[in-house]
Amino acid sequence: MTQYLLRRLIQAVIVVLGVTALAFGVLFLTGDPVYLLVDPRGATQEQIQQLRVRFGFDQPVPVQYVRYIGNALRGDFGLSLHHGVPNWDLIVQRLPATLELAFAGFVIALAVAIPAGIVAATRRNTWADYASMNAALLGQSMPVFWLGILLILVFSVSLGWLPVSGRGGIEHLILPAITVGAFTAARTARMVRSTLLEVLGQDYVRTARAKGAGERRVVLRHGLRNALIPVVTLLGIDFGYLLGGAVITETIFAWPGAGRLAVQAITNKDIPLVQSIVILMALLFVVINLLVDVLYTLLDPRVRLA
């Protein structure tokens, strides 16, 4: 068990280092990074060179990278070029909104996907199966921005039941949460159906039925628990997607989260802020995957022995 977790931890560190290297490299893809700091209309070559020295851009790139990692380990992700305040502060201010949206989307996705997957699997080839799987197909193939706009038009503009955009009470959360959770709900429902069907055909399920266990007990205790093992992996990845992939949803619904901050940073060419958001999101993603790995060992003891 310890060896397994240690191996996963080392892999996670390698992934994070890889992401930081990529994010750091982006700064140099835009050309001389000093031009991100200065309006070339008003600066002299002397001023530009002074800035280059001040921000360390005159040093070799590997030296800059090592220094960047050193600062990041101390929690110093540098200053935003556009806002003039520490990147870390900007992200931390917006992270609660992103987490709130991601959790709400996740809860909605689970609440829809697991019952829908169970119904589809236990009532295979009936209208319930066809309806839920067609709905899942629709949810999986519908672009997020399209779904968001559709929900706004129906529930906000036509019916007037919910606000169009902004963050406030629960009523502000509903439409963006459905929008952000729709894809996960659809994919998870399909996954639950297929894995549950596979599990329900196993010998131990037949044995359970032969021993006289009720259908509910067979499906929920013997079937679903085993069917959820691959689903948990998928959900872990999807939660990371919900955290980092809410960019479009946050923009459509004017949700003040880290995704919208990322869009603004890209528009403003605030590369250090983009780097920080990418690294932080990657870190969250890696941590979630680590937690999934731990959860895996609890759900399936064979993993501990592998």
Binding site: I152, S156, V157, V164, S165, T251, F253, A254, R260
Partner: peptide, 10 residues
């Protein structure tokens, strides 16, 4: 409100 369509819907 960054999205132009959302502004008009508001």
């Amino acid at each position: 409100v960054p999205d132009g369509f959302s502004r008009i819907n508001e």
